[in-house]
C-alpha cells in the first residue's frame, strides 16, 4: 500500500500539494513514482512562469515511460528543486520530502477540485483493479 500523508491535498493525476502560508509545494505521489519505476530524468518548469491549473508543466521519465505533470493549481513558479536535475532518484526515495518538484505562488485561494487523502486513497485503490 502506498504512502498517502494526511496533511496534503492531491490531484486526480497523482500530484500532491502542500500549503505553507501563500506558497504551494508540488510533487508526485508515492503511488505515481512506484508505477513509473526508477526515474532517470526530471524536466521542471521555468522560473517566473505563469501556469494554469491542469496545464502540463513538467515531465518525469523512467527508462520505459515518461509522465507529464499537470499543474494542480494556477499560479506563478517561484522555485524549482534543482537537486532533481542531478539526482532524479530523489523522487523515488523521498517523494514527499527531498523529491518535491517546484513551488508556486497561487493565483486563487483554493482549488476545489483537489482531493482529500481519503478521496485519493480510493482513487488509487480503484485504479488497481
Amino acid at each position: 500500500m502506498s504512502n498517502i500523508p494526511k496533511k496534503l491535498k492531491y490531484s486526480k493525476t497523482h500530484e500532491w500539494v502542500r500549503k505553507d502560508d501563500d506558497v504551494l509545494t508540488i510533487g508526485v505521489t508515492d503511488h505515481a513514482q512506484t508505477m513509473l519505476g526508477d526515474l532517470v530524468y526530471v524536466e521542471l518548469p521555468e522560473l517566473e512562469l505563469d501556469i494554469e491549473a491542469g496545464q502540463e508543466c513538467a515531465v518525469i521519465e523512467s527508462v520505459k515511460a515518461a509522465a507529464d505533470i499537470y499543474c494542480p493549481v494556477s499560479g506563478e513558479v517561484i522555485e524549482i528543486n534543482e537537486a532533481l536535475l542531478e539526482n532524479p532518484q530523489l523522487v523515488n526515495e523521498d517523494p514527499y520530502g527531498k523529491g518535491w518538484l517546484f513551488r508556486m505562488r497561487a493565483f486563487e485561494n483554493e482549488n476545489s477540485e483537489l482531493l482529500t487523502p481519503d478521496q485519493y486513497s480510493k482513487l488509487v485503490a480503484s485504479e488497481a483493479h
Partner: peptide, 11 residues
C-alpha cells in the same frame, strides 16, 4: 528512449 515515439507517442 523516453523521448522516442514508441514511448512518448504524440509528444
Amino acid at each position: 528512449q523516453a523521448r522516442e515515439q514508441h514511448i512518448r507517442r504524440a509528444k
